[in-house]
């Protein structure tokens, strides 16, 4: 990332992991012998999917030209004695002299990993364009303004005797604010009235009332005009335009594609609530070391077995939030 951002990307364990290696058998080969050797390896040596990210041949340039080294298979899959016997059986013992070499164990996800790990042995790398984390200056300005509002909400909460955590949910497509909320555990005497759950509940009520309003309209129109369905859809799409303040749209489903700005890292419960709600992105300020679910205790937003992943950014306006610092 070239850009200096006022927040930090909360990467997955896969993205932030450092080099781990696995032992493989390799052998230097002459260029003219590579063809039959590769054929032999593909046909007779154990194959493992886990090494799909590793290249078969390494080319090392030096003063006298270059050396080709071929990867045979992993040390785990066959013993050295069995491999030697296999090579001998195919009369390749004069050209294949296996030795052990380390290669990287996992595919590289970031360019930094790729640049570092390829030094050991060449690997494949396909950069995911969706990983590109670039923001325009205008976006950064908006992001900071939204967090300022979340901070104001947390101050408001504090003045009302609540735990000072504020949050705000927006639709980044049109910058419409969908809900502003804060923690209400104290006043409601409900230990689960966290800012995020309150926010999700607000958005759900809004979506439900929009839906009911819309279906009432369709019903009325159908009764008045008794028109076939396609005409109803046309009239209905007009009603979207004047309902824009309510952020009505055909594709609304839970909090899909929305951004949330919250002063403190969501706890595990709220982090999973955001998965269930299909949130788009999360920005938070202060990390929550005792129950945080988006970086501190767990990384729920990137966990492999969960069905929805999202991007998380931390440390936004943290200096302002640290003054309110509490663990929740």
């Amino acid at each position: 990332m070239d850009q200096t951002l006022p927040f930090k990307y909360v990467s997955s364990d896969e993205e932030s992991r450092s080099l781990e290696t696995v032992d493989v058998y390799v052998s230097d080969v002459k260029p003219e012998e590579t063809g039959p050797i590769i054929k032999f390896i593909k046909k007779y040596c154990p194959r493992e999917g886990i090494l799909d990210h590793v290249k078969r041949i390494k080319k090392t340039s030096h003063d006298k030209g270059f050396t080709l080294t071929v990867l045979i298979c992993s040390v785990e899959s066959i013993t050295f004695t069995d491999l030697i016997a296999l090579i001998k059986n195919h009369n390749l013992n004069s050209i294949l002299k296996p030795r052990i070499q380390q290669v990287c164990k996992y595919p590289a996800i970031t360019r930094t990993q790729f640049d570092e790990w390829r030094k050991l042995w060449p690997i494949n790398f396909i950069e995911d364009p969706k990983r590109e984390l670039k923001f325009t200056l205008k976006e950064i300005e908006n992001i900071e303004q939204y967090m300022e509002r979340a901070i104001k909400l947390s101050i408001q909460a504090k003045l009302k005797g609540e735990i000072p955590i504020g949050c705000i949910m927006i639709d980044p497509k049109n910058n419409v604010i969908l809900s502003e909320s804060f923690d209400t555990r104290n006043s409601t005497k409900h230990p689960l009235s966290h800012a995020i759950l309150n926010c999700i509940n607000n958005v759900a009520s809004l979506e439900k009332s929009n839906y009911l309003e819309k279906s009432n309209k369709i019903e009325i129109i159908q009764k008045q005009k008794k028109q076939p369905v396609d005409v109803v859809i046309n009239i209905n799409s007009e009603s979207f335009s004047y309902q824009q303040n309510n952020n009505e749209s055909k594709t609304t489903y839970l909090c899909k594609g929305f951004d949330i700005f919250i002063t403190h890292e969501p706890c595990i419960m709220c982090s999973m609530a955001l998965v269930h709600s299909r949130i788009g992105r999360v920005f938070y300020g202060h990390s929550n070391k005792v129950s945080g679910g988006l970086g501190s205790c767990y990384k729920i937003h990137t966990h492999n077995s969960l069905n929805h992943h999202f991007k998380v950014f931390k440390g936004l306006l943290q200096h302002k939030i640290d003054d309110l610092s509490i663990d929740c």
């Binding site: 759950l197 999700i200 509940n201 759900a204 979506e207 439900k208 839970l254 609530a273 269930h276 709600s277």
Partner: peptide, 10 residues
């Protein structure tokens, strides 16, 4: 009641 409430946390 997630469908009825339009809320994935219910």
């Amino acid at each position: 009641r997630t469908n009825e409430t339009f809320n994935g946390t219910r």
